[in-house]
Amino acid sequence: MAIMNAITIFGLCAAALVGLGIFGLIVNPQPLRKILAINILGSGVFLMFGVIARRGAAAGLGGDPVPQAMVITGIVVAFSATALAVALLLRLVLVSGAATLEAEAEPSEKDGR
């Protein structure tokens, strides 16, 4: 039977966070909430890396350092993604006045060029 030790609990938590993140990203109409959902999804994925690292604990270390290094790189990349998304959103609101992703009108005529 699957051992319900601490690591598995965090694994289940990671899986749940991934599901929550994807649901939030798909369902929430507001772009800022979508960016938030992507961060939650990202933290879920990184938590899974952490669980795998923890299971790989050996040679006197609390966890396998390779996935942990990957998570650090992942967090920094996820941050730059969030920063770009937020900047794009602010620019969209500045230009169009509304913060929505639904493309009601196809690219209008003036963008024909």
Partner: peptide, 12 residues
């Protein structure tokens, strides 16, 4: 299909 929520569900 190109609505956001539909595309997301389709992805899953």
């Amino acid at each position: 299909l190109r609505r956001w929520s539909i595309a997301g569900s389709l992805l899953l």
